[in-house]
Design a protein around this nucleic acid. Structure first.
Lengths: 237, 237
DNA sequence: ACCTGAACACCGTTCAAGT
DNA sequence: ACCTGAACACCGTTCAAGT
């Protein structure tokens, strides 16, 4: 995370640093939601004047991009951590393990998204306004890693990219849809009422009402992995 | 779009109406981007004072939700329109046509996303903070329609929901990733340079650099449809 | 019922100043 | 080099008033 433009100061004495600012921003959003993040509230959290932040991010927009950067850095850290505890068989499935490696990446991504649900919308949408080469380095690093793994499937370049888009789109889309299970009234024990579905006219939305009770009961990690396998099977040759 | 709370006035004489406000909001965002949308700028566009908008949306947040509502309403309109021009064979593929109907929905969704690229991030993320039953009616209507179509695959409830999540996640995720192809320097004729990739060190990102030239060359509609078929094949029994 | 207009609290950011 | 503090333009929203 230490790019040239935002150097980490000598470390120890100095009060602020880019990682510290980004971490504080993510903490604040985890605690109070995206809307509560302002340059002023973040400054207060860090015990500093708002303008002090501008040394570590070029403004609010850049701060948001920095949070996406921190998100991907966390994914990469997680992956490095469990790479040090390799699974029993080094050559996991006889295919060089690229498939299992992709699953590990998806799982790590999923874990970080779960840890910072309010940050995830930023991860899904902010890169839309950034040209590829300007994206956060940790994001590019993960992209490169996924591409390198897909290469081992032995596809040509076009097919590799098609599979790449499918994998990334699937993971982000599935997480986005899954995290939509927002509860209306957390007090209510009945799951159907918790979702506020009694407000839905049953005549107009028969299927939605009938299935809504089951909406909450599923295993996101397993479904995400299953879909990933399907796409790898059929697009991976 | 005419809910009880925001009635369309007699129509004709009256200056403002909820559809007119939402349409103006989407126009503004299409023209100048999400950041340019403020209650004040929207009011100016409509030739009205900012506070006049509060009669048609309960505030900025509700306005954003209203735009998602308008987005889904546009999808539904599109679907109704081409339902009036049915394909030559009424029973499209012998399976009751539910598969083809799903493809039509995906295509319509895709078209509207293309028409309003700056609005799409709202569509992808705003429902995260709304409990199911509070979501815009046009969105619930489309959800119901998709569920009804999936029912025809003859799956049990759990499998139907699994497939439902997969289909919705796939379409949204794919569109999100595909629309990320943002151009760095539109003047530059060379596609590789247009993406700003000369700034990527080739040693660290060999695959990304090698494949980036091909990133722009693909057929989004076809890839989206292909992925949809794969998921329907394997999760649809 | 529908819209105006002034006012308030808060926001991101500038600029000049401190150390 | 790193942070402060005052200031500015702009924002969403309140409230009371007009017609």
């Amino acid at each position: 995370m230490g790019s040239d433009r935002f150097p980490d100061p000598p470390a120890g004495r100095a009060r602020l640093s880019r990682p510290r600012v980004l971490r504080a921003a993510i903490d604040l959003v985890d605690r109070e939601g995206l809307a509560a993040l302002t340059m002023r509230s973040l400054a207060t959290d860090l015990g500093v004047e708002p303008m002090a932040l501008y040394r570590y991010a070029d403004g609010k927009q850049a701060l948001l991009d920095g949070m996406v950067e921190a998100f991907y850095a966390e994914v990469n850290d997680l992956l490095r951590a469990d790479a040090e505890v390799p699974p029993p068989s080094t050559d996991e499935a006889g295919d060089g393990g690229w498939r299992a490696a992709l699953h590990r990446i998806a799982r790590a991504f999923c874990q970080v998204a779960d840890a910072h649900p309010a940050v995830f919308p930023l991860v899904a949408t902010r890169p839309l306004s950034l040209p590829l080469a300007r994206r956060p380095l940790p994001m590019l690093q993960l992209n490169e890693q996924v591409l390198a793994l897909l290469d081992r499937a032995g596809l040509d370049d076009r097919a590799t990219l098609r599979l790449y888009r499918a994998v990334v789109g699937w993971v982000i889309g599935y997480l986005l849809v899954d995290k939509r299970q927002v509860i209306d009234n957390p007090e209510e024990p009945e799951p159907l009422l918790r979702l506020g579905l009694h407000r839905l006219p049953a005549e107009q939305y028969p299927r939605l009402r009938a299935l809504a009770a089951l909406l909450v009961e599923h295993d996101p990690e397993a479904e995400l992995a299953a879909g990933l396998d399907i796409l790898l099977d059929r697009l991976g040759g």
